[in-house]
């Protein structure tokens, strides 16, 4: 199958000190699909995800080799200016981290940084993306209150709106529902499925059922190695590797 791609990983190796966390990963992420990265805890899922927007190199002792091409630009090249690449990707973490400011300012933060000053346009942007993250109705009355006062589920949707507001083409999620109650999780999942028409979505998850429900494409990591990747249906129904088969049956966790 031939996919068009924003993100292409080539021979990526990551070490923390002496420990090799990712081993020679080569992978293309298909566009406008939901890609799920699965694998047991500690296998390097977060590391792989963070290497897409180079958030891993702020840690002391990290060694990275290989290439990660985002729209044909190698972002691991130290000369590359990362902020405009990060702008192309929204990020959702395990736990929502609203910025220490009001709900409005959270969403407006990115657009402001990228040069939008006009109050009317900002109002528009804030409303549009809060709606897109299906949060608008719950917060429109208290848009100027601190974001820290929202519930965790609302905070996660706020983080999604905040990420969407910089108009990325890609959304990265690191177990974005793991801190949420089932209902909030469902809402986030739903939103993702709606968003996939316009965005390329990559999520890390350790919930196999969630991967089955949402994913079009699946990447299976084990101890830092890329064991298997392919369309979700193939991986779940006809895994080629024994390890994948065992993981999917729930034999390794």
């Amino acid at each position: 199958m031939d996919y068009q791609t924003h993100i292409s990983v080539q021979n990526l190796n990551v070490h923390y000190g002496n420990q090799q966390v990712l081993k020679n990963i080569t992978l293309n992420i298909p566009d406008r699909k939901i890609t799920a990265i699965i694998g047991p805890s500690g296998c390097g899922k977060t590391t792989l995800l963070k290497s897409f927007n180079r958030l891993i190199d702020s840690v002391e002792g990290v060694k990275i080799s290989g290439r990660v091409l985002v729209d044909d630009e190698n972002i691991l090249d130290p000369k590359t200016e990362v902020t405009h690449i990060r702008k192309k990707m929204g990020l959702l973490l395990q736990k929502p981290y609203p910025l220490p400011m009001s709900i409005y300012d959270n969403v407006a933060y990115g657009p402001r940084i990228h040069g939008i000053k006009n109050k009317k346009r900002l109002d528009e942007i804030v409303e549009r993306f809060l709606k897109k993250a299906s949060l608008w109705d719950e917060v429109k009355e208290r848009i100027n209150q601190p974001a820290s006062m929202l519930s965790v589920g609302q905070q996660q949707r706020l983080c999604l709106a905040r990420g969407l507001a910089v108009e990325p083409e890609i959304i990265l999620g690191d177990e974005p529902t793991s801190a949420l109650d089932p209902q909030s999780s469902q809402r986030i999942e739903q939103t993702f499925v709606e968003l996939k028409q316009d965005y390329t979505i990559v999520i890390v998850t350790h919930i196999l059922r969630q991967a089955r429900r949402m994913a079009d494409y699946v990447v299976f990591l084990y101890l830092g190695e890329l064991i298997e990747h392919g369309p979700a249906w193939d991986i779940f129904n006809h895994p080629k590797q024994a390890l994948t088969r065992e993981y999917i049956k729930g034999l390794i966790s």
Binding site: D72, E73, E81, T83, H84, I113
Partner: peptide, 10 residues
């Protein structure tokens, strides 16, 4: 691709 130095970057 070379990105021009923006004011932010400077």
């Amino acid at each position: 691709m070379k990105v021009p130095m923006s004011a932010r970057r400077v």
